[in-house]
Design a protein around this nucleic acid. Structure first.
Lengths: 337, 337
DNA sequence: CTGTTAGCGCGTTCAA
DNA sequence: TTGAACGCGCTAACAG
């Protein structure tokens, strides 16, 4: 309510100039003696007292305008309803807060239109950078991002055609872990259930799977938005083919498959063993719990955020960042909770 | 990269004044003839062409500063990793986009310190309003919010001591649905598993439960951050007490309980039937699927967002909104997927 | 009717 | 310690 009090009000109330108030407000943090602008302690205290009393809140808009910095980062994930991305969101938020950044979140739902709209809308908010999970078909939008010069880091998947800053899990190695674990559990005839969606995380998993098991081990594809229906079909294939081991290429997909298998009377973990990618709270229901490959979520968050901060600072100093295209590849680990 | 182009660059390039560019940019949407400032079509087209060619993006900071509006809303949920809040986040995002608003998301993790920090940090970003899920202990912070005069809407739970704009589910009625369903399924000896946390959603459920079943039906409490350990204890109580029906007061809690019961060899849905609150993809694993009370998530999102927009517009016009404290109560429905 | 001038909003920062 | 310019876009008032 009561109109926002500005730096000017503080100045008048404290009987000093506007500039001085600004100096004091900016030096408040530095406890050491070597502040750039020295202010007599008495006036400083008076100003701080007045500011506190009047409950002064600096206008971020004015500061943004003047400094040309917003300290806002845009984050575009695939699906905020998936605990996988929800966890990344939480982790990113923590790190951002620590570094005095605010995050704008968006959920693309694997829809390139939505993805693009989010990029545009975040650009309009003058974000200093992006952390994004690109979707199939987001190529043109990514290209625009690159052309814009706004720093960004791609996570979770990489775009094979573009060479850009990226933080991903070593999905090939993760697949090896999953397959070997399944074999150690005694599975002889293994298949994989994957998304038809051609994103690097999926193709990397599928390729390694083929390398390890050859063409006899089939890969059944499911649609991202039709998992439930497709799961029934895949469950039938598993039963008909007599497979005793399944690699589920994502948590959502595995859960859908588990439901279908159970409904069809399959004894999961007995007749058919499953190892999945990514955490789900469903796994613990089974006996023994379904094992899964856990991606280092908090590490993905921290590495990508720090990478982005680095790019932003670099760009801020006027340095060219268009040549930076490091790929950070993190290892996954096998879990069973 | 290429320095941001401003309205000034457009003006120079198009050979007109800065003001004219501004007019054109603001009237671009209105297709009808009664624009406030009329500009000759030829110059307008030229300006638009130049703006498009130079890829002009107005600085939101400058606009914010000038208009005193940010079109940003702060949303503080309890746990972004929970599909319940994740879904609300998605729905809110959709509505916000439609109304030209951007959302700042935060996750309190039921920690009042975090909650407060988020409120403060969002305030500093000059959000025009809040949609919040208050936590236990957030009272002082909520009070500050009220005093600040920034419009806000509380969702999911209400604070019994404060009379503020609220959108919640009718948890009492939802409990009736759950209990009656459990009885229809044949459960004779029913108990409830709830959070120790004293928030209205939980207490409303517990109170109605007691009203319906009397003191013979116990309510077992679990800690929010210790559900897994507590679930084991509660499972023991359920087994020892010979209960054949359980109301799980939240999805997370029910899932934890399901794990414990399974591990202890209980035949869920046979020896012990469960009806839960809120969706989880775990339910479908059971046969028959575990039934649950679904809160109208997208309705909660749309009602709260529209309520907030209304408050913001009202306040924008200088009207007093401190007297508005409507509570919108929505009905839940029983599901089994 | 079409277009321009000039001041504003608020905090930052350089020159004095 | 201060005055004043500045960043960028909006808009009232005014001129041709």
């Amino acid at each position: 309510m009561a109109k926002n009090i500005t730096i000017k009000d503080i100045a008048r109330e404290a009987g000093v100039s506007i500039a001085l108030v600004s100096f004091v407000m900016n030096n408040r943090i530095e406890a050491d003696g070597k502040q750039k602008y020295r202010v007599s302690p008495s006036t400083r205290d008076r100003i701080l007292e007045v500011a506190a009393r009047m409950n002064y809140q600096p206008s971020s808009a004015a500061r943004m305008l003047r400094k040309g910095r917003t300290h806002v980062i845009g984050v575009i994930l695939s699906d905020m309803g998936n605990i996988f991305y929800g966890t990344i969101a939480k982790e990113l938020e923590k790190i951002a807060t620590l570094n005095n950044y605010t995050l704008l979140f968006g959920s693309s739902e694997e829809d390139p239109e939505r993805f693009c709209r989010l990029v545009k809308s975040f650009m309009e908010k003058d974000v200093e950078g992006f952390i994004v999970v690109p979707t199939v078909g987001s190529g043109p939008c990514m290209q625009k991002l690159m052309d814009s010069g706004v720093p960004f880091v791609v996570i979770d998947r990489y775009h094979p055609d573009y060479n850009v800053p990226t933080v991903v899990t070593d999905n090939s190695d993760a697949t090896r872990l999953a397959v070997q674990d399944l074999q150690k559990q005694g599975a002889k005839k293994i298949c994989m259930a994957s998304y038809a969606m051609r994103i690097s995380s999926m193709t990397d998993r599928e390729n390694r799977f083929r390398d390890l098991l050859g063409d006899d081990a089939p890969i059944f594809n499911m649609g991202f938005s039709t998992v439930d229906a497709d799961a029934d079909r895949v469950a039938d294939e598993i039963i008909a083919g007599g497979y005793d081991g399944v690699i589920g290429a994502s948590n959502i997909l595995t859960v859908a498959l588990l439901k279908s298998l159970m409904r069809k009377g399959v004894k999961v973990q007995e007749d058919v063993k499953i190892v999945s990618f990514d955490f789900s709270n469903v796994y613990g229901i089974f006996n023994p719990p379904i094992r899964y490959v856990l991606q280092p979520l908090s590490q993905i968050a921290s590495e990508s955020a720090e990478f982005l901060f680095y790019l932003i600072e670099k760009k801020q100093k006027g340095e060219d960042i268009s040549g930076i295209k490091d790929k950070i590849i993190l290892k996954a680990s096998l879990r069973n909770d």
